[in-house]
Design a protein around this nucleic acid. Structure first.
Lengths: 200, 200
DNA sequence: GAGCAGAACTTGAAGCGTCAAGCTTCCTGT
DNA sequence: ACAGGAAGCTTGACGCTTCAAGTTCTGCTC
C-alpha cells in the first residue's frame, strides 16, 4: 500500500501560479494551496464527515431499524412543545430539505410514529406530531444512540477538545451557512447552569 | 422560531435510570446522557457533518459538474504514481465502498476521464488510470475547490484550531474505524509537540 | 378587494449509494 | 495438483435524496 496523498491540496498538481490577483470572489485561479498541517487537518475532517454518519446510521439501523435522519426527526419532535412542530421548523432543525422531510414523514407516518395535521394558524403549513408509539420508539432508541455518540466522539476526546470542537464547529457552520448563524448563538452558554430547559 | 433542543441527548426524554450496571458493552440501557456542553459540541459536529459535504458538492457541481466523491477519485489518481491505482486502494483512499467506486469509475470512464485496465500482477484486480483529459479536468477544478475548502474551513480557524482539529479528527476516526488506524499514523509528522494526548 | 409575489408543502421522476449475488482469480493445505 | 475458501471486482435491484413542477394559501400593494 503506497497511498500517500489524497488530493491536490498542496501544489503537486497545478503549475498555475497567478501571482496575487487578490481578487478572490471569482473562484477560479488562486494558487493558495494548503500547507501540510492544513491539508492533514482537512483530510481528517473529510474522513470524519464521511464515515461518522455511516457509523451512526449503521448502529441505528441495526438496533432500531431507522436512519440517523429519522432519529433526528423523532427526537426533534419529542422535545418540542406538544410533541409537534411545523414541517419547515423541523426541516431546519434536522438540517434537511423540506422535500426530504416530507418523504420521510410520510414513511414515519406509515409506521405509525408521526401524524400530520394542518396548521390552524397558517393554512399553508403542516404540523408533524409525534404519536405515543413514536415517543415509545424514540425513548427506546435514544440510550443506544447516545451511547454510540459517546463511544465514537465524546469519550474519545478530552474536555478541552470537546470545548475546542464546539468552537470549531461553530466557526465552520458560520461559513457554510451564514443565514443560520442566529441559531448558533443560542444553546448552552459555556458555564453549565444545569437543568433549565423548558423555555422556548 | 422556537427550536431549542434537537434530540434526546440530555435526560429530557427517558425516565429509564438503571443505576450503574457499569456493563456498557450492551448498547441498551445506559443513562449516560450528554452534559450541555457535550451535547452542544455534538450538535455542532452533526451540523458540520451534514452541511459541509453539501456545500462542497454544490460548489463542485456548479463549477465543474462533478461531485465531491468524483473529485476525490480524480484527485487521488492524479497524485498516484503513473496516475494509476488499484480499485481497492482507491476505494480506501476515498473512504468509499468498492461497489460505489465501481459505479463511479464507470461514469467517469464514460466521460473520458478515467480508464480501466486489468492489473498485470494480480488478475483479480483492476487498475483505474487517469487519462490526460482527466488530469486536465482535475487541474482545472482543483483551485476552485481548494479555495472553497479554505473559505469554509481552514481560513475560518486559527492555527491552533487547525492543529486541534487535526488531533480531534484523528481521535474520532480511531473510534469509528479502528482498522484504519495505521493510515492515521502516516502523513504530516510536523505537528509541534502536541501537549496532551493519550487519555484513553 | 383584486391581483400577484412568494411562502409552505407535496409529488413524481431521475440519479446515486447500498446490498446481495455472482464471477474470476489467487492462495492454502493436503 | 487440486479442492475449498477467500480476495477483488462488477452488476442489478431497491431505497432514499434531490430536483423540478405543481398546489394551496398568505400578505402586499395599488
Amino acid at each position: 500500500m503506497k497511498l500517500q496523498l489524497t488530493s491536490p491540496y498542496t501544489e503537486s498538481v497545478s503549475q498555475v501560479h497567478e501571482p496575487s490577483t487578490t481578487r478572490d470572489s471569482s473562484p477560479s485561479q488562486q494558487p493558495r494551496w494548503l500547507a501540510p498541517q492544513e491539508r492533514d487537518a482537512w483530510l481528517r475532517l473529510v474522513g470524519v464527515v464521511i464515515k461518522l454518519p455511516t457509523a451512526l446510521d449503521a448502529q441505528l439501523q441495526r438496533d432500531a431499524g431507522i436512519s440517523l435522519f429519522e432519529y433526528q426527526v423523532l427526537a426533534g419532535l419529542s422535545e418540542a412543545p406538544d410533541r409537534m412542530l411545523r414541517m419547515s421548523d423541523l426541516a431546519e432543525l434536522t438540517n434537511g430539505s423540506l422535500s426530504r422531510l416530507s418523504h420521510v414523514v410520510k414513511r414515519l407516518g406509515s409506521r405509525g410514529w408521526v401524524r400530520r395535521e394542518p396548521c390552524p394558524e397558517d393554512g399553508r403549513s403542516t404540523n408533524a406530531i409525534l404519536t405515543d408509539e413514536g415517543l415509545a420508539k424514540i425513548t427506546a432508541t435514544a440510550p443506544g444512540h447516545v451511547d454510540t455518540v459517546r463511544r465514537l466522539v465524546i469519550d474519545a476526546l478530552t474536555a478541552a477538545q470537546v470545548r475546542s470542537l464546539r468552537e470549531i464547529g461553530t466557526r465552520i457552520l458560520q461559513q457554510v451557512d451564514p443565514a443560520d448563524t442566529f441559531r448558533l448563538r443560542r444553546a448552552a452558554p459555556d458555564a453549565p447552569a444545569p437543568g433549565q430547559e423548558r423555555s422556548r
